[in-house]
Amino acid sequence: MDETDLAIIDRLTEDARTSFRQIAKELSISPDTVVNRYTTLREQGVIRGSTVVIDPKKIGYQAMAVFMIDASPANVIADESNSAAPSQILEKLIRMPSIIVATKTIGDHDILAIGVARDFEHLICLRDIIMRIPGIKDLEVSFWVKRTEICPKYLVI
């Protein structure tokens, strides 16, 4: 990656819909160069994709919650042979409406999921649904209402 790549990335981070022609003009390079650089960055996986950032509050979500999950030992071990395959718990979580991030973790818990909730009743409902997933030993929930967007550079929801 050189400065041109970084400039293209910067521009697209600000607005992913910026036309390649516009970027070319701003950087005083040819549109073809921008297209080629973009294609290469995509192929290398530097840019994994693009998305629209939604404000959850505007569509009726008042709270966000993090679910910190401890899996039963058998479930954790079963996955060890093939660490690339997400565990069954993770797969179930990610198919749940309202769960927008899920990841295996090392440290104080085994799995972490972040979800959006319409209200407290919905939050409790989400917790109960997660608790019923087989292989979950324990669950800790923290939630917040103020900051309901996660849209930093390397982690966009």
Partner: peptide, 17 residues
């Protein structure tokens, strides 16, 4: 908690009520 490689992002799980 360190997030292990295959972190999954699913913004499409937002439901529009």
């Amino acid at each position: 908690s360190i997030w292990v490689d295959e972190t999954q992002l699913c913004p499409e799980n937002f439901e529009f009520q």
